[in-house]
Design a protein around this nucleic acid. Sequence first.
DNA 1: GTCCCTGCTGCAAGCGGTTGCCGCTTGTTG
DNA 2: CAACAAGCGGCAACCGCTTGCAGCAGGGAC
Lengths: 351, 351
Amino acid sequence: MTVEPPSLPPRPPTIYDVAKAAGVAASTVSRAFSRPGRVNAETAERIRTAAQALGYRTNPLARALPTGRTSMIAVIISDITNPFYFEIIRGAQAAAAEAGYTMLLADAQESDVLEREALDRAIPIVEGIVLASSRMSDSAIRMTAKQRPMIVLNRAVADVPSLVTDNPHGARQAAEHFAGLGHNTITYVAGPEASWADGIRWRSLREAAADHGLQTRRSGPYTPNVAGGEQAASDLRHKPPSAILAYNDQLAIGIIRGLTAMDIVVPDDVSIIGFDNILAADLITPRLTTIAAPLHALGGTAVHNLLAIINGARPRASEPMVLPTRLVERASTARRPRRRPLTRTSAAARE
Amino acid sequence: MTVEPPSLPPRPPTIYDVAKAAGVAASTVSRAFSRPGRVNAETAERIRTAAQALGYRTNPLARALPTGRTSMIAVIISDITNPFYFEIIRGAQAAAAEAGYTMLLADAQESDVLEREALDRAIPIVEGIVLASSRMSDSAIRMTAKQRPMIVLNRAVADVPSLVTDNPHGARQAAEHFAGLGHNTITYVAGPEASWADGIRWRSLREAAADHGLQTRRSGPYTPNVAGGEQAASDLRHKPPSAILAYNDQLAIGIIRGLTAMDIVVPDDVSIIGFDNILAADLITPRLTTIAAPLHALGGTAVHNLLAIINGARPRASEPMVLPTRLVERASTARRPRRRPLTRTSAAARE
DNA sequence: GTCCCTGCTGCAAGCGGTTGCCGCTTGTTG
DNA sequence: CAACAAGCGGCAACCGCTTGCAGCAGGGAC
């Protein structure tokens, strides 16, 4: 009779432990869990009971090795501090969790190098990828899309399934809103030149404005955050336009803050519309009128479609999927002032 | 001579492919990568070259199976839409990436059930866990902490390594700031009762206030978001206090909005301080004075320490680690008005 | 009663790495 | 020159689960 060594680290039970307890072979245990109906009902029941008693949980790593099914997807984001993504992330997370998938989040910090690294780390362990606002080239994206099912967010890449918001329609809504308020010139404050969304927003605005007989100007590019907006406000100070459409809400918020600091009143002197409807748009004073993107749905739809592709659906890679926009009217837009909007000096003189 | 079937899915190369190419055994290839020095320098070089040529990348799944080292950690967050976490996430992500670890983010959506599920899904595949503002019981946390290295954030749990901000000091800073502005009563607007941070903030405020001869009141609990703050403002409308310390910035922002809507002026009539210094604190009008938590460092430190524990460091589970707070003075606090702050009706009468 | 088919279970070979142990080469030592 | 140690590479057994294939028993058909 030998003394059992104390089983130091109680390793989690495996299918073999369950098999022994239930008096069957390991393969039967495996099938009992992954192939319902393939195993006799009462045998299955016996196995299930034994597993329960032992606290068995199937090891996803071990399962993944032979099958490749890791039940994980990656969501890669160009800049996780951008509030634009918060709801997207949540929508994605919810959709993934519902399907029993685990989400791997990676932040590229606006660097294509870091993006590549994150991608390389993720690819071997995930079944699919959501690439949000990638900073990589189209061809690099197409390349990696060959290795794993992928959905590109906020960008249209030929031959890769893409999901975007209806930027043209959004820009048109903004133009119409401004037109309805009597403005006759719209200044577009641009975001990063590398941004696909920036390009399409500007082009669409021009077309829509022309249709309504409005002029357009363009200012920028600016880094799309609050500081960038303050910079833009400063640049525009000598000749503040009456109507501004900003590349995104952060920029718009920065512009409002910059103008306010110069005693230029929004919306009395200058009307501003942003893009995206991030949370802070509703917190700033005055509350920001904006073109809302269905952020939660964007994340959810991306993951949903990705999972569909993983499960064998034929992706529609030719045309990007488009989600609708909505004009959220708040307090940063008003009728065009009769006189030209005030410059800093005339505003100061008014006091 | 047989016709090779077209190798349909070009499976990624394995150590066996590399071994064949380099003319060595697979085990040598394995060692060449994971055990530097164990293999002859030029052999290693040859292997490295062959691997390079084939585009070999070691499969983390396969590596993880025998070793258990997955190079992944999980970060589980009670509510990912809470802006409080944004910088924490980023700090955590950065620290993880730097150490070559992949971060798995999960949102518990304020539900202990979902938190458990996320945990159960994560545990088998990660080497460690950061649990932020858990909604589970202390004993449940201790239980899971036995299964994997773990760090608890924003909460002190006995016997589990914890990381918190210096709430007592923060509350004291707020009390002193109010005292210096001539206020003699501080109203604390409370967050969720289940919140560990809420309890300690309130207790610390009371002590600090007593030390400066100030009175304290307490209002709440409220759900800690903007809507909750607006509710609080509404509840306080009949007798607005002169100084308010809110459980967190979101609540403070809601209070400011609520009061402003009632024509009560912040900071002229009421001074407000928040907690956390989230991004929006700097966006609202007036800009919010707040007790800043080092959010980025919080996330970074948590991951850093977690990795240390994973690598064999003895965790200090007895006392929670504490990160300092800082008073960020902005525009939501001012000297106490001579008369009692205006109620809604008197404010209306003033016009 | 024999044969075949069907339904269920077990065997064993992987999936792609890791690692304890053994054996072969060298170089060193007495 | 024999004995020995150190350095290096290979063999083979895992890690926990999946799955093609084979074996076996029971039921129905002939």
